[in-house]
Amino acid sequence: MCLGIPGRIVSTTPGLDLGQVEVAGVVREINLALLDGPFVPGEYILIHSGFALERMTPERAADALAFFGGE
């Protein structure tokens, strides 16, 4: 029942799969292992079930967030 939702990278630690990602205003630990790094703070990713599945442009992320009633 969960939809993929955009998240914004807050911080990552080299060598660790988990990154701090802002999702709908809440910072969560998201697993970035399925994508190639490095990740830049502010970059958008598509998240599903706790995993980043693809990178998103800011424009695409904004469109998706609008659907969720976000930014």
Partner: peptide, 14 residues
């Protein structure tokens, strides 16, 4: 039924 993925932060309200 919705509780588990919500507690994991996967869907629904925060």
């Amino acid at each position: 039924y919705a509780l588990a993925p919500n507690l994991l932060g996967y869907c629904g309200p925060a």
